[in-house]
Amino acid sequence: MNSFPTQSALDPAGQGAESIAQLFYWMSGGAALIWCLVIGLAVYAIRRPQAHHYRLTRLLVIGGGAVVPTVVLTCLLSYGLSMMPELQRPAPEGSLTVHVHGVRWWWRVEYLGPSGQPIATANEIRLPVDQPIEFKLFSEDVIHSFWIPSLGGKVDMIPGRTTRLKLHPTRVGQFRGVCAEYCGGAHAQMNFDVVVSDAATFERWLADQSAPASEPETDLAVAGKAVFSQRGCGACHAIRGTAADGLVGPDLTHLGSRLRLGASLLDNTRQNLRRWITQTHQVKPKVEMPAFEALPEDELTALVAYLEQLK
């Protein structure tokens, strides 16, 4: 899991991002052209030995200073506005809908199952390629902003309101999403992974996610399940199919299937899971989970074995 997912709006993999990148290239090209013209004129004005032609300079000041900027701005405004209807149009009725809640400093994600039952996960969003997806965005505390640069534009998540966004991935791959509105201490570590795959792979993943957690099989993992409940992890974390039903932190039902831990901060490996549980605040300062520094070694090993097999 050391592949670096892309996080560039200039490497588009979705329809929204493609239009935004296009707009950016037009604006940069235009800006470069205007810059060359202005600097060229300045050099000419300095170098020219004779007096400048009076009428010509007036024309240049009025034309270049007022008329040309107005025309350029009108063109840019029209070009940008002409993109809006398509970018803002909701995905058609019946499209896949994903609910995402911004929470300091992670992401609660909810898909709707075939019979309308919610399927909870966190910090990872998987999407099928080549179809529009409707996002409903919420915040549980302060203003966050939901942004997957490779796929499209960003939209704020506002407490007490529902905002929305349509994304339409056009390329299979792994991308990174970020929080784009400063929201407090660990804002810079509030990210998420996005995996775009073909529809069949996505459906299989969603079916796996909708199932309750698998029962632990090894003795170590069975012991780990007991540690999880004795240490009170279940007060904050839900593991569907067990007594753990906390909502303060991310749903861990299928933690083992996720790419990363702590809102896309660490690769999901055994070593990192141990670090996350015992050195939580060194790994992610300000995080709203208590560190379990004093957890005895045998309990930690068992706990990690349990969490790992929650595929």
Binding site: L73, T74, S78, L81, S82, P85, Q88, R89, P90
Partner: peptide, 18 residues
């Protein structure tokens, strides 16, 4: 005049509440 035209330009392109 130009600013008013710019304001109006929005609804020339955007025709919905979305």
């Amino acid at each position: 005049f130009v600013a008013t035209v710019f304001t109006a330009l929005v609804v020339v392109f955007v025709g919905s509440c979305h």
